[in-house]
Amino acid sequence: MSLDKGTVRAIAELARIDVPEDDLDHLAGELSGILSFVEHLSEVNTDGIRPMNSVADLGLPMRTDAVTDGGYAEAVLANAPDAIEGFFTVPKVVE
């Protein structure tokens, strides 16, 4: 499978990573190389095999419903690049 520039541009957009137009070709080549490497998997017969999403062979552990966390807004905001009046901020969004 080889990826064209347009596809790479679309992936970069989905991943929210700026890719300069000049780099698209090179990246397309690299990503295509990786895809052709992983494409060997198509030789394997996986009929009737369930995907193994985790090796952990447990049920999902549950916690009790109790307030045990939060209540530390300063710590949550301590690393924020731009916090105002207890809020995180982002460039203005128009809905």
């Binding site: 949550v76 731009d82 105002i84 009046e85 207890g86 809020f87 995180f88 901020t89 982002v90 460039p91 203005k92 969004v93 128009v94 809905e95």
Partner: peptide
Amino acid sequence: HDQHPTKSFIDL
């Protein structure tokens, strides 16, 4: 979106 002229505020 209406707290600041150029920023949106986020409360989690």
